[in-house]
Design a protein around this nucleic acid. Structure first.
Lengths: 253, 253
DNA sequence: CAGTGGTCTAGACCACGAC
DNA sequence: TCGTGGTCTAGACCACTGT
């Protein structure tokens, strides 16, 4: 008898749906095109709307679709390559920095950040909020934690709250000798405040990039940047080169 | 009257649930502990099981929970820091490499990889499969695409299919002068084959690390590595230093 | 076998965007 | 006001794990 494993592991419907939709996206749709609404699509495929949504959610996670409440579902453009590893050994806010300062506050950081900074858990630090855009679209929101000991001359600053004051704090930072930095990338979900900056719903998947800046033999600042996982591909260029513009996981047609 | 935005934006139930569960995890549960099953939890919170699951899914995405069919839901240990940026300017398979070769085949790569290699879309390349484990747990699966032109002396290899032959191909690679490499990280979902290696369900979120190796003025190899997003934090150490062991997004208690 | 998480259904109502 | 995606319900059955 044929021991060829035939249908012995039935594929979930949403998984099969995803495959079908992926192929349709590759061959029959162009970037920006609007798909039929979820109720129509579900009816067309003969499944419940929840099942159809499970497939759409995965495609959105993979950056193939973009869904907006009140508008519809559109075919997403290829992910944008966002340089993260460039300008190594440079403080944030230096020349060529891709970020835009928003404001600065003084408050106690999250416990994990306080530990990284080696400061007390209730010790207040400067918290600079910055955003990053590419092609006019917001791609990342950042919180930059700077202990007062890293910017000693801040007392002279009299800029009012807002971007001007944030930039003033960053300018002070440039005066310190930066010895090195290290980074970590992990998956997270957008907090309410970040989601707002990124024009996404809270809970959307984000790539969290944590950078520690070392100076004077200790951690002088910590940056926690959240990038939109649906639209971004983080690039770490060790050597100059052209960007990969297509999803390497995407199968050959 | 009071323009203080009071409850004008009601929080979704699953979002509130997630907050409550997060706090409970922080204060009342320890790593490895088993949570009540989904039906009981849903009843306890007075919501439908689907709503409860929406909260659990996000917590799993954030690496706080681990769910296994037929077993239950457990409190996940903190994410493992996995070094990705170390041993720069070294071919895969060199000394100190954390990967384990599984086998090697010859086939045409996905279109995106073929483009990166500058080879024809139907041109076959060597495809080395490798896996990576930490603390006994599988954390990543890799496909390494090597054009025949990068390993010219392969004809002499007579190792049988399997790990031995894969290692032989990698050994040939070491003979070429590596000029540089660049990397990209993005969010993806596990294909069926990778999911199996990673002991996860197909579609699970993964961090896809694409590395291009440059030699002789061209791209000599491309690696596509998929890391379990739930258990891994990818580290790019530019400077020696201690790892951050806690989730920096996690709020202070 | 019993118990768990995974999939699926057929509805309902809500929040948002555009007109 | 209308159409969209987002949330939620109360069930059902399936696939897997351990005993």
């Amino acid at each position: 008898m044929g021991t060829t494993q035939l249908e012995s592991v039935p594929e979930p419907k949403y998984w099969h749906l995803k495959t079908v939709l992926t192929e349709a996206l590759d061959s029959e749709f162009s970037v920006g095109e609007i798909l039929p609404n979820e109720r129509d699509l579900a009816a067309r495929f003969g499944v419940a709307r929840a099942t159809l949504r499970q497939a759409l959610e995965q495609l959105e996670l993979e950056g193939r679709l973009q869904r907006r409440r009140g508008v519809g579902t559109t075919v997403a453009p290829p992910r944008v390559g966002v340089a993260v590893g460039t300008a190594q050994h440079a403080w944030p806010g230096g020349p060529g920095d891709a970020w835009q300062a928003v404001d600065v506050t003084v408050a106690a950081p999250p416990a994990a950040v306080a530990d990284a900074l080696g400061s007390g858990r209730d010790e207040a630090v400067h918290i600079v909020r910055r955003t990053r855009t590419t092609h006019g679209q917001p791609v990342a929101a950042e919180l930059l934690y700077i202990p007062g000991s890293s910017v000693p001359d801040l007392s002279a600053i009299d800029a009012p709250a807002g971007p001007a004051r944030a930039r003033a704090v960053l300018r002070e930072l440039q005066r310190v000798d930066l010895e090195g930095q290290d980074r970590a990338v992990e998956l997270g979900s957008a907090r309410a405040d970040d989601a707002k900056e990124l024009d996404r719903l809270p809970g959307s998947p984000v790539l969290v990039v944590t950078t520690r800046f070392h100076a004077a033999g200790r951690t002088a600042a910590v940056s926690v940047a959240t990038y939109r996982a649906d639209t971004c591909r983080l690039t770490f260029g060790d050597a100059g080169g052209v960007e990969i513009h297509e999803d390497p996981q995407r199968r050959a047609s």
